[in-house]
Design a protein around this nucleic acid. Structure first.
Lengths: 134, 134
DNA sequence: AAAACAAATGCAACACTGTTGCATTAAATT
DNA sequence: AATTTAATGCAACAGTGTTGCATTTGTTTT
């Protein structure tokens, strides 16, 4: 746990370890309230800054689906190289049944070219039903 | 203008026409503050409900990019058939230069199949630089 | 190991956006 | 024109994001 933080050049503190442990205890992306419920006693602002730091250092990423749905998920280990706009080659799938968001790695990521735009990164979002809910 | 509202089964009121005119006066997606600046005198809650209604009736759609960027754009005319999850076959492009969001129609929309998921709709987001900014 | 430095925490405070209830007003229908 | 139905304007509140600042803690240097 500590090494995970150190590898990302994030200062190790008890609270940050705690937050990281919550992330580890979930399979899929989690939202603020899930995180807050799992944390025993915490300061809202510190949590806010912790999440911000984790994002900036490429430990987690934010997933925003249309319709006010916002969650956070751990990044893959090869993720977050210097810049914050690391391109996950995965798709975010929102299940309308269980409301879970799944990060799915794609082998063949669609290559899109637009004549009038220089594309730096592409994100894919999908929704529907997961195996459990269909 | 009035017909546009009527076609979408949205009751015609002066304020709604005004909001629609603001949308028409922009080429690309706009955010709340741009909208508010253009509206002379308005009630915040009424605007909120107006936008909600416009979305529900398929007149506009909301675009949320990662990083707290949220904008609204007019839908294409063939858009919004009964359900709110109409699938625009277009991509949302965020220009890191001018911060504009462009709705771009794609001829060939990537077809993605996932073994364990039933995909109802897919959204594509990209960022980079537009023609003007590169 | 102690001192010095840099960064994280905890708190107050505030801004923005979303959201509901309710009385009033306006639009659509008869 | 009367009736019905929906929109508006206002108060009020919730959630999240955000900054400043004093204090505490982690890290580095001597």
């Amino acid at each position: 746990m500590k090494n995970l933080l150190k590898n990302k050049k994030i200062r190790v503190t008890p609270f940050r370890i705690e937050v990281l442990e919550v992330f580890k205890s979930f399979d899929n992306a989690i939202d603020l309230s899930q995180l807050e419920q799992k944390l025993g006693d915490f300061d809202r602002i510190t949590l806010y800054r912790t999440l911000k730091t984790f994002q900036e250092k490429g430990l987690i990423h934010e997933i925003v689906m249309t319709g006010e749905i916002k969650k956070y998920a751990l990044c893959e280990s090869d993720c977050g190289k210097e810049d914050h706009h690391h391109h996950h080659n995965h798709l975010h799938f929102y299940c309308k049944g269980c409301q879970e968001i799944f990060c799915i790695d794609l082998k063949e990521y669609p290559q899109i070219k637009l004549p009038n735009f220089q594309i730096d990164s592409i994100e894919l979002q999908a929704d529907g039903l997961c195996n459990n809910c269909k």
